[in-house]
Structures are given as C-alpha cells and as structure tokens.
Amino acid sequence: MFTEQDGVAYLIGSKVPDRESYFFPAHLAGGDPAAVGAELEEVLLSPKGTVWSYTTSSYQPPPPFVAATDPYEPITIAAVKLEREQMVVLGQCVAGVTPDDLTIGSEVELVIDTLYEDDENEYTVWKWRPVTEGEG
C-alpha cells in the first residue's frame, strides 16, 4: 500500500489510464463510471498534501487496531487533500503531533513509520508529518 523511493515515501494508488481518476488503496480501488471496464494502472500518489481536516482517537480503538505504546497514547489523525489527485486520504500523524499543531490547509508530507512492534517484527504504515518552515 506504500513504498519508499530515494528517501521519499509514497502511497501506492491506482488510476484510470488517460484519465485523472485516482484510487487508494490500489487493491480496493473503486471505479470511475465514465471508464467502466478500464484496466487500472498502479501509480505513486503525491507525497505531500494539505490538511483537509483532523481529529484524534483519544481512547484506544478496538482490534484489529494494535496500540504502538502501552499505555495507549492518543493518536492524531489527518485527512489530507492531494492536489494532483483531487482526493482526500486518511492517515495517522507521526507521534507527538496534536490537533494544536495542525490547521486546515497546512502542508503535510508522507513518511513511513512504525505501526507497532512485537518480539520479532516492526510493522510499518504511512503517516502524515507537518512540513515545518525551512523543510518545505
């Protein structure tokens, strides 16, 4: 569902060939009714976007969510508008980001980060990180 290339994190989406209709995640893509039957092609989505809205999971979500920390630390979740794709994608924000750090319209970038760890493995996921002055 996501990848990293040359140090940049990307969501793997899909699109209709010759049409700017994008879907995420690729393996659960919907359809564009103007292109029924089109064979979708895989595409890397824009790695940056602007905050469309944001909220928190202040209480630990039920399974299949697995908390990264014990005790659970509230997570902040952003819905991010991608300009080229004209779509909004959900994701956790990196640890430490609170609603006070976000405003609608502010810029964020994608990173690959820890979802949770067990004795053997680290499981990863995409997260949104605010783009700070000078980094942008």
């Binding site: 989406g13 699109k15 209709v16 049409r19 700017e20 209709s21 994008y22 879907f23 995420f24 995640p25 919907g30 564009d32 103007a34 080229r84 794709e85 004209q86 779509m87 909004v88 994608v89 959900l90």
Partner: peptide, 9 residues
C-alpha cells in the same frame, strides 16, 4: 481510507 478523485470528473 480515501475519497473518490475529482481529477477527471
């Protein structure tokens, strides 16, 4: 996890 895309329509 994502909305539809309004890129084409």
């Amino acid at each position: 996890l994502a909305t539809d895309s309004a890129g084409a329509t």
